[in-house]
């Protein structure tokens, strides 16, 4: 008997740096498991530091399974780009620390959390203490 996999909330990591977004996504997937849809959208179209709305849009489409997508921007322009791409109830921004928020969101998405669950989990990353 096969089970149809449950669609998971997607996570898009938007950083000024392609390397930062890519590595943060790899770290999050390593912790949350390979089924999680965590995709980086870092840097400009020509590979420089900045934000590419086209890359972010493509990443959203890639992870969207119809149950919601969480955008985690790093700062400045990536936050503004994310705001332009918000869709109420479908594509939402988590205003959280980039790495910790990405991991918390990925873990919650991986266990089948709803869009709100994933946003809440990411929000909790704000108050994680390391010591």
């Amino acid at each position: 008997m096969t089970t149809i996999p449950q669609p998971l909330v997607g996570v898009v990591l938007i950083s000024h740096s392609d390397a930062l977004a890519t590595s943060a996504a790899a770290l999050a997937v390593q912790i949350a498991g390979p089924d999680v849809q965590v995709v980086p959208a870092g840097g400009t179209d020509d590979g420089g530091l900045g934000t590419s709305p086209d890359k972010v849009t493509a990443a959203i489409q890639k992870v969207d399974r119809g149950v919601g997508v969480v955008l985690i921007p790093d700062m400045g322009g990536s936050v503004l780009t994310a705001r332009l791409l918000e869709v109420p109830g479908q594509v939402a921004i988590a205003d959280v620390p980039f790495v910790e928020g990405a991991i918390a969101a990925a873990v919650q998405a991986g266990i089948g959390g709803t869009l709100q669950d994933v946003l809440d989990a990411a929000e909790d990353a704000r108050i994680y203490r390391k010591l």
Binding site: T44, G48, G50, T51, P53, G77, L80, T81, L84
Partner: peptide, 13 residues
């Protein structure tokens, strides 16, 4: 919005 790459893209856009 599509081409600037920095915060000024979304803002001026």
């Amino acid at each position: 919005i599509r081409k600037v790459g920095g915060a000024s893209g979304p803002l001026y856009g």
